[in-house]
Design a protein around this nucleic acid. Structure first.
Length: 123
RNA sequence: CCAGACGGUUGGACGGCCGCUGGCAGGUGCAAAAUCCUGCUGGAGGAAAGUCCGGGCUCCACGGAAAAACGGUGCCGGAUAACGUCCGGCGGGGGUGACCCCAGGGAUAGUGCCACAGAAAACAAACCGCCUUGGUCCGCCAAGGUAAGGGUGAAACGGUGCGGUAAGAGCGCACCGCCUCUUUGGUAACAGAGAGGGCAGGGUAAACCCCACCGGGAGCAAGACCGAAUAGGGGCGGCCGGCGUUGUGUGCUGGAGCCUGAUCGUCCGACAUUUAGCGCCGCUUGCGCGACAAUGGAGGGCGUGAAUCAGUCUCCCAAGUAUACGAACGCGGAGGUUUUCCGGCUCGCCGCCCGGGUUGGUUGCUUGAGGCGGGUGGUAACAUCCGUCCCAGAGGAAUGGCCGUCCAGCGCCCGCUCGCUUCAGUGAGGGGGGUGUGGACAGAACCCGGCUUACAGACCGUCUGGAUUU
């Protein structure tokens, strides 16, 4: 089946909703918040997975924050390509080690966390 | 070669796989837009940072200008769109020097302040002193003169020397400094020279202040356009609708008025009847005419004061009545709040149209005081001319993620050369081999000119001081 292109979460209200009621999974390199997209659950069309990224000022200056977001975005792109996460809303929050840790490890952690989140939501 | 001063350039290179975003071309679509696919091509900085100055641009305010207030700037000249920036000078200070630093207008407009110490901190005074005179119990005391010396301080009323004097003092003189005037050079800041003045005018304006000059405010989240759903606003049409009160419209009754008619009043009045009288006869109770008057009277004229009736029309809506109306209120009803009660809330429904406006979208948005190369003018900042180039435009915010090879740089090991020295070590050097490590500060957000701050290093040029060789 054709994988729909992932959409983006952009509004502050979306992030707050995920933070309040999403499933929260902490791993080295990131914090994952996942939630089933309620707005699209009853419709017949398949909803694309929606992604959001957060890097707070705690991480450092703009260069460090942007690098953390870019690495998370790339890891998510690779991990989501081999999974079906349709109808999910995901938020990835950068941590202090996101920009410097080994990328393969980051990708592996994300895959595990995502599988766990998918399992939890589906049951 | 060492040490240093100043200015400039640069801010790792190459490749592979996978992505993001702008543009162009082609394909997909009847076509436009959008989407998707393919190819080509562009895609962070010297500070993109801090947001400290100055401008462009946009909106708002404002009649022009000035003043006041507030804020800023502050030697002179130039550059510039402008600046608190830059360039060239001047003055002061530092350095052997190349060079560097300066918040550098006014203290003779006025007000204030100057801690501690010191006798005294700005207006003249005198703690220790020095000198003269007088006194003396020989310790010194009193009066006067003086400001050279001592002491305090960041700073003490020009400095040094000679003369002078009781001791002293710009008291006099010379030089230096200062002030005023004149003059020379310079656009000017200022510098030089001369004359005069015995010297006034302590510091602080990064205290108030004075003077000169500059400044309207807010910012691309400016501003402009398009505009979904929902709610709300306005208009039109259709449909349904309980009761009461009020309101509004309409009809009738009603009220008022004009006009007309009738009634009425008055006048005229044909005509009719009656009558005096007259005429005629056929002379019986016959026929004809018939004044005045009376009565009746068709009809006509006039009449407004009032009244009555009818009608048309107009006006009014106090009252009555009927009817219409989603206009108001109340009741009822319905909806919904899980159920019941109470309370509160909402209430025509449907359709169409209009306007405002939020999320959102488009625009502003990158061709500009533009970059590069060269010529000309200028000591320079810079100006100008010619040629050439188009060089990021995101929007929870693209310009990347991962990997490999290499180049600087740094560390370690092996070997080499030279020096020292107890045959074992130690120091220095260049560069050969191996190996590990490894690239700073930092991310455009409308755009420019600056300033400030951060920064691993690498390279180039000019100059200064020192050493060595010839």
């Amino acid at each position: 089946m054709p994988q729909l292109l992932p959409g983006r979460l952009k509004r502050r209200s979306d992030f707050l909703r995920l933070a309040a009621s999403g499933r929260k999974i902490v791993r080295t390199g990131f914090v994952l918040q996942a939630l089933k997209d309620v707005s699209a659950s009853d419709s017949t069309s398949v909803a694309p997975v929606r992604l959001g990224f957060t890097a707070t000022k705690k991480l450092g200056n703009a260069v460090i924050r942007n690098r953390a977001k870019r690495r998370l975005r790339e890891a998510a792109r690779l991990v989501l390509a081999e999974r079906n996460a349709q109808g999910m809303e995901l938020v990835l929050i950068g941590r202090r080690e996101t920009g410097s840790m080994d990328f393969a490890k980051l990708r592996q952690n994300l895959a595990q966390a995502l599988d766990e989140a998918l399992h939890e939501v589906s049951t």
